[in-house]
């Protein structure tokens, strides 16, 4: 199994997004892919445009929520989807690039909008095997 990956976990009304990676930054990238995967399969999204995202937060968990909410904001206001992310984290500030294209209903068959990343089940932590986990529930 690849070291970095994303997955979804169940919530009563909504859906949990989880990224796992060798570093917090990789785990954040994977969590953002999990967010894309709530809406469409990330491999369907071409990296035609690059969008810059910057966030700062009091701690790394709120940084994850802020980052995912910034992604949701860029998707909503630009009418875009992102299929790839590059994240750099220093302390509690983050610089990221999201690569994607405009929503095409025929091509992407989007399932549902993401309303916001929540603080429910919000966790960023190093696991026993040394890899990092970044997760929260997304309201859809």
């Amino acid at each position: 199994m690849r070291e970095s990956r994303y997955e979804h976990f169940p919530h009563d009304a909504d859906v949990g997004v989880r990224g796992i990676g060798a570093s917090p930054a990789e785990a954040f990238e994977e969590a953002a892919l999990a967010l894309t995967a709530v809406i469409t399969d990330p491999v369907r999204v071409d990296a035609a445009e690059r969008v810059e995202i910057r966030c700062e937060a009091p701690d790394i968990e709120l940084l994850l929520a802020d980052f995912l909410n910034a992604v949701i904001y860029e998707m909503a206001t630009r009418g875009m989807l992102f299929g790839r992310y590059e994240v750099k984290i220093e302390g509690a500030s983050l610089e990221a690039a999201a690569f994607g294209e405009r929503v095409d209903v025929e091509k992407h068959r989007p399932i549902v909008e993401a309303k916001g990343a929540t603080l429910t089940s919000l966790r960023v932590e190093q696991r026993a095997d040394g890899t990092w986990l970044a997760q929260c529930v997304v309201d859809v």
Binding site: P58, L62, K115, G116, A117, T118, L119
Partner: peptide, 14 residues
């Protein structure tokens, strides 16, 4: 509404 909820949830938590 989603954006208002998102922003205030975070600000109130902090």
């Amino acid at each position: 509404g989603h954006q208002i909820g998102t922003e205030f949830l975070r600000d109130m938590a902090a």
